[in-house]
Design a protein around this nucleic acid. Structure first.
Lengths: 336, 336
DNA sequence: CTGAAAGCGCTTACAG
DNA sequence: CTGAAAGCGCTTACAG
């Protein structure tokens, strides 16, 4: 590995102090430095292929221009899509992002927070897993800027950018009911994650306000880990009721994928016998004979906003910004 | 933001030197330090919630325990899947990964390399875009450890982990020919990227060795940016030949997705009228009536190996490791 | 207009 | 067994 060139090398070659070199290269004290000297310094820096040692600078100025991103799993489309948007937005202000996957596990989550703190990130963007309220609370007390996205903890007063999941679910179910469905069901994860509970709450409200008697067996919750079999079972049960469900809201796109693939093996017809709506888009279902109506999150806006709020907070960490974005119901062929 | 506690704070509280604290916390000079003192130092560190300042350490030891990952687009399944595998493997040795997306653009690629070098990464994992040979070559001269994956530049003698694309394509096409196909076509990207050219080379070799007269119009190349329309046109042309193609090898999973979606709108039957094989898996096609036969890359092994080779090289950057992995042809319903 | 010097928070060779 | 001190490569208040 070749020796890196430092400010000192440039200073020696030009015959000035390292201070002066630093000033010139950082465009400080402009106009107060002789043009020729500045010129010469810049030339030499270029010639020697000088590159600032960010480590040293960061140590001195106590700022790393790095943000940490904690998602559930970087390999999932939602997480990696967000990562990309955040990457681009952060890059505009010369921030680099380091990432980690929590696997919906509070302990792994804690380890990641710890790693990122040790690495002196300037801030964090976090999709907190279940049971991480305490850790988020402690983080808040530490004073490091961070913003939650996708999920948030209502008990902790922090920045967040989330979907108005209640309204999104409400509107979706209402739409199905208005379309003639009498027995709408929901299949979602068995979790205490607030954003998921909001979806169920929106579902229930839609039934209530439409005068439909809620039936407990219409709400199916499956374990978030390896849910395939449980989802199939849930759908099967919903369709085997004395009065079978005639509409299903799938609580996430991955649930929808398993659910619809299973439904595809059944003789029933969508949307005539069964209406379907999915939370989030699912390219994987594009070949299903009835294109799936879905709840569209404004991913791009959410990612950008999340990043901007964080960068705003870095340096002047005062206000708390909480955003609940509205979803759009994209109506396609799986609903009437 | 709360003041961080430093070695000095611990040293003062315990009444020893910072050197001693450093030794204890890093488990150096074990056994040569009084047990009680060591104990006391550890307790105090814990009590004050001490966290090493990695910046300072890195500056001193000239090692950041960070690796940079440059992919085409972190939002794509291949890239994010790899990212996840690399994350896990790197974590085992306490490395953190920072990432960036090149968008298949050599200039963006150069900017990312530059950013990562400035951030003093210990090494790089790179999927180089087209026209980046020079940059890879220069990187090689710099002496920073790195390993290419997925693609590589045959003109530069570096570490890489790639698929044996030639054999993979050869076997796939050979399989279709053995199954009775007379006029196999290939739809792939119009690119000078070596790994893609290898796929075409494998395709051509299979025709030749099977005694099939190659027909130039069987090879369709589409632009890598926004290829949807071009792919549909390519498929349409292949099927409109006087003697239409009766088999298609899609050069990537995203090409296959567009291609098969289009084919799904046509009256022809897969695999009777047309056999299909895709490079890489494509969950998006799971609902197609004939499950797609595909060329499976050993993603997990590739990701792990790539990371291990890099970490091996960091610190003792001597040998060059080049790995061409064998793909597996996963035979399903889209071929006879 | 420019430089000497302190200091960010560590590690480690050296001395005792 | 322990500590004083140098140094990693920067930035910046201060002095002239």
């Amino acid at each position: 590995m070749n020796k890196r060139v430092s400010l000192k090398d440039i200073a020696q070659k030009v015959g000035v102090s390292t201070a002066l070199v630093s000033y010139v290269l950082n465009n400080k004290k402009e106009g107060r430095i002789k043009k020729e000297v500045a010129q010469k310094i810049r030339e030499t820096a270029k010639e020697l292929n000088y590159r600032t040692n960010l480590l040293a600078r960061s140590l001195k100025i106590n700022k790393t221009y790095t943000i940490g991103l904690i998602v559930a799993d970087i390999a999932s489309p939602f997480s990696s899509g967000m990562a990309r948007i955040i990457e681009d937005e952060a890059d505009k202000l010369n921030y680099t992002v380091i990432f980690g996957s929590s696997d919906e596990n509070a302990q792994k989550f804690g380890k990641l927070v710890d790693t990122f703190l040790t690495r002196q990130v300037d801030g964090l963007i976090i999709a907190p897993p279940e049971n991480a309220e305490n850790q988020v609370f402690r983080l808040r007390q530490q004073g490091l800027p961070f913003v939650l996205f996708d999920r948030y903890c209502p008990s902790v007063n922090t920045n967040y950018v989330a979907l108005d999941n209640y309204t999104a679910a409400y509107n979706a179910v209402k739409y199905m009911i208005d379309g003639g469905c009498k027995r709408p069901a929901i299949v979602t994860y068995d979790t205490t994650l607030f954003h998921m509970q909001e979806r169920v709450r929106g579902y229930s409200a839609a039934l209530k306000l439409s005068g439909i008697d809620a039936n407990k067996s219409w709400i199916k919750k499956v374990n978030i880990i390896n849910p395939k079999a449980a989802i199939e079972k849930a759908v099967q049960e919903l369709l085997s009721l004395d009065e079978p469900a005639d509409a299903i809201l799938f609580g996430s796109n991955s649930i929808a994928v398993h659910g619809v693939k299973y439904i595809n093996t059944l003789p029933l017809k969508v949307p005539k016998d069964l209406a379907i709506i999915s939370f989030d888009e699912t390219e994987s279902l594009d070949l299903f004979y009835a294109s799936i109506t879905y709840i569209k999150q404004p991913m791009h806006e959410m990612g950008q906003l999340t990043t901007r709020i964080l960068l705003d907070c870095i340096g002047k960490n005062n206000k708390v910004t909480q955003v609940n974005m509205q979803a759009e119901l994209v109506i396609r062929a799986s609903t009437r």
